[in-house]
Protein backbone atom coordinates (compact mmCIF):
# COMPACT_ATOMS: atom_id res chain seq x y z
CA UNK A 1 0.00 0.00 0.00
CA UNK A 2 2.92 2.31 -0.69
CA UNK A 3 2.72 4.18 -4.00
CA UNK A 4 5.69 4.44 -6.30
CA UNK A 5 7.61 7.70 -5.92
CA UNK A 6 6.10 10.75 -7.57
CA UNK A 7 6.58 14.49 -7.75
CA UNK A 8 3.98 16.69 -6.15
CA UNK A 9 2.88 20.03 -7.58
CA UNK A 10 0.26 22.18 -5.91
CA UNK A 11 -1.67 24.37 -8.30
CA UNK A 12 -3.02 27.61 -6.86
CA UNK A 13 -5.06 28.51 -9.92
CA UNK A 14 -6.62 26.83 -12.92
CA UNK A 15 -3.90 28.39 -15.09
CA UNK A 16 -1.19 26.84 -12.92
CA UNK A 17 -2.84 23.47 -13.15
CA UNK A 18 -3.05 23.68 -16.94
CA UNK A 19 0.55 24.82 -17.12
CA UNK A 20 1.70 21.90 -14.99
CA UNK A 21 -0.23 19.46 -17.14
CA UNK A 22 1.23 20.98 -20.26
CA UNK A 23 4.73 20.68 -18.87
CA UNK A 24 4.48 17.04 -17.80
CA UNK A 25 2.07 15.68 -20.41
CA UNK A 26 0.76 12.17 -19.87
CA UNK A 27 3.18 11.60 -17.01
CA UNK A 28 1.03 13.86 -14.85
CA UNK A 29 -2.29 13.20 -13.15
CA UNK A 30 -4.57 15.68 -11.50
CA UNK A 31 -5.27 15.03 -7.83
CA UNK A 32 -8.76 16.11 -6.84
CA UNK A 33 -10.38 14.32 -3.88
CA UNK A 34 -8.10 11.36 -4.48
CA UNK A 35 -10.71 8.69 -3.86
CA UNK A 36 -10.23 6.97 -7.18
CA UNK A 37 -6.62 7.81 -7.93
CA UNK A 38 -4.94 7.18 -4.60
CA UNK A 39 -6.17 3.60 -4.15
CA UNK A 40 -4.94 2.80 -7.65
CA UNK A 41 -1.57 4.35 -6.81
CA UNK A 42 -1.30 2.47 -3.53
CA UNK A 43 -1.86 -0.78 -5.39
CA UNK A 44 0.67 0.48 -7.98
CA UNK A 45 -1.93 0.03 -10.70
CA UNK A 46 -1.34 3.73 -11.45
CA UNK A 47 2.16 5.16 -11.24
CA UNK A 48 2.03 8.80 -12.37
CA UNK A 49 5.34 10.60 -12.12
CA UNK A 50 3.75 13.92 -11.23
CA UNK A 51 0.65 14.67 -9.17
CA UNK A 52 -0.88 18.08 -9.74
CA UNK A 53 -2.99 18.87 -6.68
CA UNK A 54 -5.95 21.11 -7.50
CA UNK A 55 -7.55 20.73 -4.08
CA UNK A 56 -6.93 24.36 -3.18
CA UNK A 57 -8.18 26.00 -6.35
CA UNK A 58 -11.11 27.89 -4.90
CA UNK A 59 -12.32 29.07 -8.29
CA UNK A 60 -13.36 25.48 -8.98
CA UNK A 61 -15.59 25.17 -5.93
CA UNK A 62 -19.22 26.07 -5.35
CA UNK A 63 -22.47 26.37 -7.32
CA UNK A 64 -23.94 29.32 -9.20
CA UNK A 65 -26.66 30.07 -11.74
CA UNK A 66 -25.53 30.78 -15.27
CA UNK A 67 -26.83 33.39 -17.69
CA UNK A 68 -28.45 30.70 -19.80
CA UNK A 69 -30.52 29.46 -16.87
CA UNK A 70 -28.47 26.46 -15.83
CA UNK A 71 -26.51 25.55 -12.73
CA UNK A 72 -22.72 25.61 -12.90
CA UNK A 73 -21.11 23.39 -10.29
CA UNK A 74 -17.40 23.83 -9.72
CA UNK A 75 -15.64 20.58 -10.39
CA UNK A 76 -13.83 20.64 -7.04
CA UNK A 77 -17.06 20.89 -5.09
CA UNK A 78 -17.22 17.91 -2.77
CA UNK A 79 -20.09 15.48 -3.03
CA UNK A 80 -21.31 16.58 0.38
CA UNK A 81 -21.34 20.22 -0.69
CA UNK A 82 -23.27 19.32 -3.85
CA UNK A 83 -25.83 17.48 -1.72
CA UNK A 84 -26.17 20.37 0.69
CA UNK A 85 -26.23 23.17 -1.87
CA UNK A 86 -29.53 25.13 -1.86
CA UNK A 87 -29.45 25.78 -5.63
CA UNK A 88 -28.90 22.12 -6.40
CA UNK A 89 -31.63 21.08 -4.01
CA UNK A 90 -34.08 23.62 -5.45
CA UNK A 91 -33.41 23.20 -9.14
CA UNK A 92 -31.82 19.80 -9.62
CA UNK A 93 -32.78 17.67 -6.64
CA UNK A 94 -32.09 14.50 -8.59
CA UNK A 95 -28.39 15.30 -8.57
CA UNK A 96 -28.42 15.71 -4.80
CA UNK A 97 -30.23 12.39 -4.48
CA UNK A 98 -27.81 10.46 -6.67
CA UNK A 99 -24.81 12.12 -5.04
CA UNK A 100 -26.05 11.00 -1.63
CA UNK A 101 -25.61 7.41 -2.83
CA UNK A 102 -21.99 7.82 -3.84
CA UNK A 103 -19.54 5.89 -1.65
CA UNK A 104 -19.73 6.51 2.06
CA UNK A 105 -19.66 9.64 4.22
CA UNK A 106 -15.87 9.87 4.15
CA UNK A 107 -15.79 9.58 0.38
CA UNK A 108 -18.49 12.21 0.03
CA UNK A 109 -16.59 14.66 2.18
CA UNK A 110 -13.34 14.28 0.27
CA UNK A 111 -14.40 13.18 -3.19
CA UNK A 112 -15.42 15.78 -5.76
CA UNK A 113 -17.97 15.95 -8.53
CA UNK A 114 -15.38 16.75 -11.18
CA UNK A 115 -12.97 14.11 -9.94
CA UNK A 116 -15.57 11.38 -10.01
CA UNK A 117 -16.67 12.35 -13.54
CA UNK A 118 -13.21 12.85 -15.00
CA UNK A 119 -12.22 9.37 -13.80
CA UNK A 120 -14.76 8.13 -16.35
CA UNK A 121 -15.80 5.01 -14.47
CA UNK A 122 -19.07 3.66 -15.81
CA UNK A 123 -19.59 1.86 -12.51
CA UNK A 124 -19.75 5.09 -10.58
CA UNK A 125 -23.08 6.74 -10.09
CA UNK A 126 -22.61 10.32 -11.23
CA UNK A 127 -21.72 9.82 -14.91
CA UNK A 128 -25.13 8.28 -15.67
CA UNK A 129 -26.83 11.09 -13.78
CA UNK A 130 -25.02 13.87 -15.67
CA UNK A 131 -25.72 12.00 -18.91
CA UNK A 132 -29.42 11.71 -18.12
CA UNK A 133 -29.50 15.43 -17.26
CA UNK A 134 -27.86 16.29 -20.60
CA UNK A 135 -25.20 18.06 -18.60
CA UNK A 136 -22.07 19.62 -20.05
CA UNK A 137 -18.46 19.86 -19.01
CA UNK A 138 -16.57 23.15 -19.13
CA UNK A 139 -12.92 22.29 -19.57
CA UNK A 140 -9.92 24.57 -19.71
CA UNK A 141 -6.69 23.92 -21.57
CA UNK A 142 -3.79 25.90 -22.96
CA UNK A 143 -6.06 27.32 -25.67
CA UNK A 144 -8.79 28.41 -23.31
CA UNK A 145 -12.13 26.90 -22.48
CA UNK A 146 -14.47 24.60 -24.35
CA UNK A 147 -17.70 22.90 -23.46
CA UNK A 148 -18.22 19.17 -23.98
CA UNK A 149 -21.67 17.57 -23.86
CA UNK A 150 -21.94 14.64 -21.48
CA UNK A 151 -22.86 12.32 -24.36
CA UNK A 152 -19.50 13.15 -25.96
CA UNK A 153 -17.47 13.23 -22.77
CA UNK A 154 -17.45 9.53 -21.87
CA UNK A 155 -15.49 7.82 -24.63
CA UNK A 156 -14.48 4.39 -23.37
CA UNK A 157 -13.50 2.45 -20.27
CA UNK A 158 -11.88 4.99 -17.91
CA UNK A 159 -11.42 7.24 -20.91
CA UNK A 160 -12.96 10.66 -21.49
CA UNK A 161 -12.75 13.36 -24.14
CA UNK A 162 -10.50 15.32 -21.82
CA UNK A 163 -7.04 16.02 -23.29
CA UNK A 164 -3.91 15.42 -21.21
CA UNK A 165 -3.52 19.15 -20.63
CA UNK A 166 -7.13 19.97 -19.87
CA UNK A 167 -8.88 20.47 -16.55
CA UNK A 168 -12.60 20.07 -15.90
CA UNK A 169 -13.51 23.44 -14.46
CA UNK A 170 -17.22 23.07 -13.97
CA UNK A 171 -20.18 20.89 -14.74
CA UNK A 172 -23.38 22.45 -15.98
CA UNK A 173 -26.80 20.94 -15.47
CA UNK A 174 -30.22 22.26 -16.38
CA UNK A 175 -32.72 23.55 -13.88
CA UNK A 176 -35.57 21.10 -13.89
CA UNK A 177 -38.59 23.31 -14.50
CA UNK A 178 -42.01 21.78 -14.32
CA UNK A 179 -43.24 18.64 -12.60
CA UNK A 180 -40.25 16.26 -12.60
CA UNK A 181 -40.02 13.06 -10.63
CA UNK A 182 -37.00 10.84 -10.26
CA UNK A 183 -35.59 7.72 -8.63
CA UNK A 184 -32.14 6.23 -8.73
CA UNK A 185 -32.26 2.47 -8.26
CA UNK A 186 -28.75 1.54 -7.24
CA UNK A 187 -28.18 -2.18 -6.97
CA UNK A 188 -25.00 -3.14 -5.21
CA UNK A 189 -23.62 -6.21 -3.55
CA UNK A 190 -23.09 -4.72 -0.09
CA UNK A 191 -23.94 -1.30 1.27
CA UNK A 192 -21.68 1.52 0.16
CA UNK A 193 -20.31 -0.51 -2.72
CA UNK A 194 -20.18 0.21 -6.44
CA UNK A 195 -23.35 -0.38 -8.41
CA UNK A 196 -23.67 -3.72 -10.17
CA UNK A 197 -26.29 -1.86 -12.17
CA UNK A 198 -27.86 1.50 -11.49
CA UNK A 199 -30.92 2.91 -13.22
CA UNK A 200 -31.87 6.54 -12.97
CA UNK A 201 -35.40 7.32 -14.03
CA UNK A 202 -36.22 10.97 -14.61
CA UNK A 203 -39.76 11.80 -15.67
CA UNK A 204 -41.51 15.05 -16.56
CA UNK A 205 -45.17 14.67 -15.82
CA UNK A 206 -47.95 16.60 -17.49
CA UNK A 207 -51.63 15.97 -16.79
CA UNK A 208 -51.11 12.34 -15.86
CA UNK A 209 -48.94 11.52 -18.83
CA UNK A 210 -45.24 11.29 -19.27
CA UNK A 211 -44.17 14.29 -21.29
CA UNK A 212 -40.54 13.28 -21.23
CA UNK A 213 -38.65 10.35 -19.76
CA UNK A 214 -34.94 9.94 -19.38
CA UNK A 215 -33.11 6.86 -18.23
CA UNK A 216 -29.41 6.82 -17.34
CA UNK A 217 -27.79 3.45 -16.73
CA UNK A 218 -24.75 2.82 -14.56
CA UNK A 219 -22.33 -0.04 -15.26
CA UNK A 220 -24.09 -1.32 -18.37
CA UNK A 221 -21.09 -0.85 -20.62
CA UNK A 222 -17.70 0.79 -20.83
CA UNK A 223 -19.42 4.14 -20.56
CA UNK A 224 -22.65 5.33 -18.94
CA UNK A 225 -25.57 4.95 -21.33
CA UNK A 226 -29.08 6.26 -21.90
CA UNK A 227 -31.84 3.72 -22.41
CA UNK A 228 -33.13 5.62 -25.39
CA UNK A 229 -35.51 2.90 -26.57
CA UNK A 230 -37.30 3.16 -23.23
CA UNK A 231 -37.32 6.93 -23.35
CA UNK A 232 -38.79 6.96 -26.86
CA UNK A 233 -41.45 4.43 -25.97
CA UNK A 234 -42.68 6.48 -23.05
CA UNK A 235 -42.87 10.01 -24.40
CA UNK A 236 -46.49 11.05 -24.44
CA UNK A 237 -47.77 7.88 -22.79
CA UNK A 238 -49.20 7.14 -19.39
CA UNK A 239 -47.39 5.37 -16.57
CA UNK A 240 -49.03 2.09 -17.57
CA UNK A 241 -46.67 1.99 -20.53
CA UNK A 242 -43.65 1.73 -18.27
CA UNK A 243 -43.63 -2.03 -17.75
CA UNK A 244 -43.50 -2.78 -21.46
CA UNK A 245 -41.11 0.03 -22.25
CA UNK A 246 -38.67 -1.06 -19.55
CA UNK A 247 -38.28 -4.38 -21.32
CA UNK A 248 -36.08 -2.47 -23.76
CA UNK A 249 -33.79 -1.04 -21.08
CA UNK A 250 -30.85 -3.21 -22.05
CA UNK A 251 -31.26 -2.78 -25.80
CA UNK A 252 -28.05 -1.77 -27.42
CA UNK A 253 -26.01 -2.01 -24.24
CA UNK A 254 -22.77 -3.92 -23.94
CA UNK A 255 -23.02 -4.99 -20.31
CA UNK A 256 -19.84 -6.43 -18.83
CA UNK A 257 -19.51 -9.73 -16.98
CA UNK A 258 -17.63 -9.71 -13.72
CA UNK A 259 -17.58 -11.34 -10.31
CA UNK A 260 -20.88 -9.80 -9.30
CA UNK A 261 -22.96 -10.35 -12.37
CA UNK A 262 -22.88 -11.89 -15.79
CA UNK A 263 -23.79 -9.75 -18.75
CA UNK A 264 -27.12 -11.55 -19.04
CA UNK A 265 -27.95 -10.90 -15.39
CA UNK A 266 -26.98 -7.25 -15.78
CA UNK A 267 -29.36 -6.92 -18.70
CA UNK A 268 -32.09 -8.51 -16.62
CA UNK A 269 -31.35 -6.18 -13.72
CA UNK A 270 -31.37 -3.16 -16.04
CA UNK A 271 -34.90 -4.04 -17.14
CA UNK A 272 -36.17 -4.59 -13.60
CA UNK A 273 -34.45 -1.56 -12.12
CA UNK A 274 -35.49 0.72 -14.98
CA UNK A 275 -39.09 -0.28 -14.52
CA UNK A 276 -38.93 0.31 -10.79
CA UNK A 277 -37.13 3.64 -11.17
CA UNK A 278 -39.59 4.91 -13.74
CA UNK A 279 -42.64 3.75 -11.82
CA UNK A 280 -41.36 5.58 -8.76
CA UNK A 281 -40.44 8.65 -10.80
CA UNK A 282 -43.79 8.77 -12.55
CA UNK A 283 -45.80 8.09 -9.41
Amino acid sequence: MIPASFEYVRAGTIEEAVAALREHGDEAKLLAGGHSLLPLMKLRLATPEVLVDIGRVDAMKGVCETDDGRLAIGSMTTHQDVMDDPLVREHCGVLAEVTAMVGDAQVRHRGTLGGALAHGDAASDLPAAILALDGTFTVEGPDGRREIAARDFFVDYLTTALQDDEVVVEVRVPKLDGDWGWRYEKFSRVSQAWAIVGALGLVKRTNGTIEEARVGLTHMGAVPVRASAVEDALAGNGPDAIADAAQHAADGTDAPSDLNATSAFRQHLARVLTRRALEAAAG
Binding site: L43, R189, V190, S191, Q192, A193, L259
Partner: peptide, 16 residues
Protein backbone atom coordinates in the same frame (compact mmCIF):
# COMPACT_ATOMS: atom_id res chain seq x y z
CA UNK B 1 -7.21 -14.77 -7.01
CA UNK B 2 -9.74 -12.44 -8.58
CA UNK B 3 -11.22 -11.41 -5.23
CA UNK B 4 -7.89 -10.03 -4.14
CA UNK B 5 -8.99 -7.09 -2.04
CA UNK B 6 -11.90 -5.83 0.00
CA UNK B 7 -13.17 -4.18 -3.17
CA UNK B 8 -14.09 -7.57 -4.64
CA UNK B 9 -14.30 -9.75 -1.55
CA UNK B 10 -17.52 -8.68 0.09
CA UNK B 11 -17.39 -8.68 3.87
CA UNK B 12 -20.74 -7.52 5.23
CA UNK B 13 -20.85 -4.47 7.46
CA UNK B 14 -23.38 -3.59 10.12
CA UNK B 15 -25.39 -1.81 7.43
CA UNK B 16 -25.98 -5.13 5.67
Amino acid sequence: LTTGSLLDYHVPSAAD
